[in-house]
Design a protein around this nucleic acid. Sequence first.
DNA 1: TTGTATGCGTTATCAA
DNA 2: TTGATAACGCATACAA
Lengths: 330, 330
Amino acid sequence: MTTIYDIASKANVSKSTVSRVLNHHPYVSEKNKQKVWQVIEELNYTPNALARSFRFMRNKTIAVIIPNLYHSFFSLLASGISKELRAQGYKTVISESFYNAENEKVILEMLKFKEIEGIILCSIENDWEFIEEYLNYGPIVLCNEFHEEATIPVICYDERGATAEALNHLLNQGHTRIGFCYDVSDSPLQKMRQESYEQFRDHDFQETKKWFYPECFTIKDGMNVVKNLVKHPQNDRPTALFTGNDYVAAGVIKELKQRGLDVPREFGVIGYDDHQICLATHPTISTIHIPIDQLGVYTAKTLIKTLSENKPLQREVKTFEGKLIIREST
Amino acid sequence: MTTIYDIASKANVSKSTVSRVLNHHPYVSEKNKQKVWQVIEELNYTPNALARSFRFMRNKTIAVIIPNLYHSFFSLLASGISKELRAQGYKTVISESFYNAENEKVILEMLKFKEIEGIILCSIENDWEFIEEYLNYGPIVLCNEFHEEATIPVICYDERGATAEALNHLLNQGHTRIGFCYDVSDSPLQKMRQESYEQFRDHDFQETKKWFYPECFTIKDGMNVVKNLVKHPQNDRPTALFTGNDYVAAGVIKELKQRGLDVPREFGVIGYDDHQICLATHPTISTIHIPIDQLGVYTAKTLIKTLSENKPLQREVKTFEGKLIIREST
DNA sequence: TTGTATGCGTTATCAA
DNA sequence: TTGATAACGCATACAA
C-alpha cells in the first residue's frame, strides 16, 4: 500500500508537504506541487480513508432506520435521503427495524461506537427517554414520524390534514360509515391518523372503533379486510375504507370486485402514498400523494447542517403537505 | 471521550491490560479483569470503532450496487443481502447506479480509497476490463447479473431456463406470436433472456425483432406497449407478452382490459418476479418466481468468505432456479 | 501475567 | 515555504 511517506521519499520532500499538496494548502511552492502530483500519479496513490476517518474522528456515514425495504414508500424515502447524503459526501447505511425495538437499538449503539455519525429515524420503536440518551453520541433526526416531545428536528407531512381531506372527500361522496385500515397501532404517526379520523365522529361515526382494521400492510391484508367485513350485515359495516397504503387499497378493491361489489358505486376506497399501483387496478385508486423526495432531501440537509456546524440539536417541526388525488375508486 | 487510557489510569493497570480484557485475551488475572470491567462500566466506556478500523485497516463495510430502489425486486435483493451482512457484523451501503456507468464508478473508487471493503454488483454498467482493475483493491462479486468472462463469483438464477419455461407455457396455450418486454437492452442478463427467446424462432417466430419492446420498467410503460401494439392489424401483432417484470405485466393487463381485450382468452401475459401486485390485477398474473432471499444470502456469504479467509477471488457460477407460477393471465 | 514501546496513515502545530 | 514531530485510540511484539 502506498502512503504519503512513499510519495514523500520519491519526491524528495517531507510528508507534510505531500499532505499539504493533497489538501490544497496554499503554502506550497509550484515546483514541489508539480513534483508531488507527478509522483502521486506514478505510484497510483490514493489517500487512505480509514486513516482520515481516524484522524478526524468521523467516517462520513449516516444510518437511516426504516421499518422495512419491502414497502416502496420506505425504499423511496431511503433512496431520497441516501441520494442527498451521497451528494454531500456521506455514505448511507440503510437499516430495517422491522418494527422491532431491539433492531433499532443495534443501530443506536452504532452511534455510541462511532460506527456512524448520525441517525435518521423513520419510525420510533423504543421509548423516547431511551433514544434520548444516544443524543450524547451524535445527532438524531426524525423523518416521516412524529413525536410530541422529542427535542430534535421532526420532518414529516401533515398527517391530520391529509386524513381530514380524505375523509371529507368520502363524506361528500355520501359515505357516513367509513372504515380505517392502518399498519401498527403504536406508532405516533398512525395515532395521529386515528385521532384525526375520530374527530369525524359527529358525522354518524358512532361506532368507529369497530371499523378500525390494524395490521394492514399488504395486498393480501387488504383482501382479508374485505373478506371479514362482508360477514357483517350491510347496515353494520362501512361503505368506504381509508387505507394506510395503496397496496392495501388494491387488495380491498380486488376482493370487492371478486365479490361483485361495485367500486365506487357501492363502496369507496382511498389509499395512501400515490404508488404506481394506483393505476393498475380497476378502478384506479384515489389516494394521498406524499412528497417523498422533499422529505428526504430536507431531512438529509437538516442532519448534515447539524453535523457540519457542530451545533446542538433543537426541536424544529417541518411539515410538508400531502395532496388528495381523486381517481376512480371514490 | 473515554479511551482505554482513562480506564487504565483509573484501574491502575496498563493500556495493554485493558485492551486484553476487552478482547478476551486469556492471560489476564481474574482480579484485574474484574477491576477493568468495573471501571469500564463506571466510565461508560465504548471502544472506538474508528480507531479499530484504522488499526485493522478495515471498516466492515460493503457496498451493494443496484440499478435503483424503485423496483421492489432490487430493494428486496438489497434487503436480503444487507440482512445477511449485518448478521455477520458488516455494514451495508446500498447504492443506486440508475443504469449509469459514472455512478457505478463512484462506488468502485470507494474501494480504492478503502471506504468500503468489498462490492456486490447487481448490474454491470462499465466494461469488465475497467471493473477488473478494482479487484486490486478488494473483492467484487456479481449477483443477479451475469458475465461470460468475469473472474469473480457470479451468483444468479437460471435466466434461460425461466424464459424457456415461460415461452413453452405460452406455446402450449396456443400462442405463436409472442412479444417480449424488457428494460435495458445492453445488460448481459437481458441479452440472455433475448437469446433464449430467439431460440424459439422455429415456432412461427419469424419476426421476433418486431415484437421486442425495450425500456419497459413501470406500469405506465406496460400500458404504452399495448397502446402501440393495438395500432397494428390483428394478424401482425403478438397474441401474448412476456414482460421483464410484474409491474409492466400489470400495466399491460390493465390497458388490454381498458380496450376490451380479454386476458387470457384473447391475449396471454406472463410477468417476472412474483411480486404481490400479481394478486391485485384482474386477472391475476402468471409469473416467474425468483428466490431473491437465497440469492442475497448466498452472495453475502460468498463475499464474506473471501474477505475473512483473505483468499483470492475466482470465477464460480452459482445458479438458482426460477419457477413458473401459473395464474389467470395465461 | 503484566507493562513498555511501536506502529497503523494522516493532519496540525511549531520551529526553522 | 518547509520539515520534524506529536497526536488520534487501539492492538501487539517483545521484554520483564
